[in-house]
Amino acid sequence: MALLEIRNVNAGYGKGPDILKGLSLEVEAGTSYCIIGPNGAGKSTLLKVISGLLPPRSGEVVFRDVPFNGARPDQVLASGICFVPQDQAVFPEMSVKENLTIGAYLEKDRSVIKERMERVFDLFPILAERASQDGGTMSGGQQQMLALGRALMIDPAVMMLDEPSLGLAPQIAQQIFSTIRELEALGITIVMVEQNAVRGLELADWGVVLDLGIVRFEGPADTILDDPRIRELYLGKAVGSGGTT
């Protein structure tokens, strides 16, 4: 049984048309997923639906065999799915430490919070160094690390990342990607949307191609990378040169 199942979901914004049109996807524990697809395919919308920020119009999201049925974001988070949104995922006027504390908001046990903060500081020594600095005064890469660190504070089973490399210099993006690899090693199931499709697919175990609100293809990430049709349609010229960075 899959860890997380999206069953036949329709979703859209306001009175607008459906962005997701009967989308179904199964997410297995311990596998990392990279979702790619053209603009408007519904990648970010899918993550918003799973995280509870956007209630689906029909269909359901099932996590560990329990359907969410319109759960609020904090309830989704409490169940072990966290979401790192595309930009500005940190609180700029709070210190690094406060940002991390907010991340563990749902955890009551202080010693557990302390342990997790230690783990985050081990993973990102720069955050320990800057513990008292305001989040907004750090560089883009550091803020992204803080965003990942904050997400880790809830000790999630599934971590959803919306374009983790957006707006970062290539070397910094590389750093973030290697951090994501470490998160995988920690046993966290990663579901990531990535503009830099080639990088994302190289990192992930499983590739999912979204187009016009449904899953167009899915398969092992290297197969997706090598598939000439997909290369032509969704990966563009970047494939040959090994990356757009």
């Binding site: 995280s51 920020l53 609020r72 974001p73 904090d74 988070l77 409490a78 979401f83 949104p85 500005q88 995922a89 609180f91 907010i102 991340g103 908001y105 749902l106 904050r150 809830i154």
Partner: peptide, 9 residues
């Protein structure tokens, strides 16, 4: 919105 996503009721 961010607060909500972080689990603040």
């Amino acid at each position: 919105t961010k607060a909500e996503v972080a689990g603040v009721p």
